[in-house]
Design a protein around this nucleic acid. Structure first.
Lengths: 210, 210
DNA sequence: ATAATTCCGTAACAAATGTTACTGTATCCT
DNA sequence: AGGATACAGTAACATTTGTTACGGAATTAT
């Protein structure tokens, strides 16, 4: 594990901290489409992402969903972090978008490391900063863009994080992420196909190079 | 100034830190409707709010606006904080909703205090936490609520922060905050009046107790 | 007092998004 | 193979939101 830690977090953390993470961290491998966290669940450890992509969703009382952003390797979930600090329940849902590897850190260590390691403090601050910026970006999209633009952005982002211009998803799944209906997505996808931006197949969308 | 600092931040900061804030902080009083920060401006100091209400807005390239949230006394702007840390430009616009008093902290002190004072670290972490939660709340509203519900929520929040059930604003101003058009707001306000939730006057809306 | 300006109400219409319903086809299951 | 299920396309319609236009009332300026 220590090698993978060094590869992904070596530039951030000093050796002593990497060593500690290696000792107390729980290494986990999870399959695609695995629910890492539900809204309302208590948070007892914090994940450091080593490999793969995690999508972070918001849910309202009716169970309607909305994609907030994707986490990639080197990222941590500032939302979880935030909940750890405040000893509160999770406000978000986390699902693996691909197979993923991560290290779980018990929350007791966090407070300790915050005093002990400057690099950890900076990491935490940076994570908060990055997540705030992602949230701003999410707000921009839902507030200022129309659904067709949001859809295209969504497809582009998805190909970016998976590094694959083929998107394996049904229209219904996309509709859930963007908080709209399947019919609307089908309609807009069809329009994007006419504009030669994408190619449609069953369970599969190919993003064409522009 | 030290009394006002103690009154608002005494429960958060130890005396030594309060003393330092008192020494290096710049006390400022600003009138209503004063622009504290523009999108793209460089951030060289961090505000601690002592009195009054500040509204934080997001702007897109076309100059369209959207209200993110209100800051009240005891709050700081985590977005500014975030920008200070990253030495980057402001992503938001800040305008005083009422007369306000605040203390400006030079950003050099922040890094110093983060190592030196545990209470300062916690304050910074808490601010990030609170702002993330506010952002989630903002996302909930724009993603899950229709315009009439957003409008009512907006009016309720506005009366809460100003502690006055009379809202002094034109329909156009409200439309800017919610990123819609004046006509839409007039229409929905009229509907709220019919439901006996509000009373409409020129430049003034009275929120009726339910 | 008169004119100009700002604010609000409303109608009529346009565009975007949401809903329901039905079809055909691909895929899966046994 | 045959049936069940999941997925996508499409039409028709409803609702929400946005736009343009205009008139009247309140406020401000001259």
């Amino acid at each position: 594990m220590i090698q993978e830690l060094k590869a992904n977090y070596g530039h951030l953390f000093e050796d002593a901290l990497l060593q500690e993470i290696n000792e107390v961290g729980l290494f986990k491998e999870i399959p695609e489409d695995f629910t890492l966290m539900e809204v309302g669940s208590y948070v007892k450890s914090m994940p450091l992402l080593i490999h793969g992509v995690i999508k972070i969703l918001r849910e309202d009382k009716e169970g309607d969903e909305l994609l907030l952003y994707f986490l990639e390797k080197g990222d941590t979930c500032a939302m979880t972090l935030s909940c750890c600090m405040g000893q509160s329940k999770s406000e978000i849902k986390a699902i693996s978008e691909t197979d993923a590897k991560l290290v779980m850190i018990p929350i007791q260590k966090m407070e300790e490391w915050t005093s002990k390691y400057k690099s950890w403090r900076n990491f935490v601050f940076d994570s908060y900063h990055n997540r705030l910026m992602e949230m701003l970006d999410t707000i921009d999209k839902i507030a200022f863009l129309k659904m067709d633009e949001r859809l295209l952005t969504y497809l582009v982002e998805k190909t970016k994080v998976t590094k694959d211009n083929i998107i394996s998803a049904t229209h219904q799944e996309i509709a859930y992420d963007l908080h709209t209906s399947r019919v609307v997505i089908s309609r807009l996808l069809k329009a994007l196909e006419k504009e030669r931006k994408i190619e449609l197949h069953r369970n599969r969308i190919v993003l064409l190079p522009q």
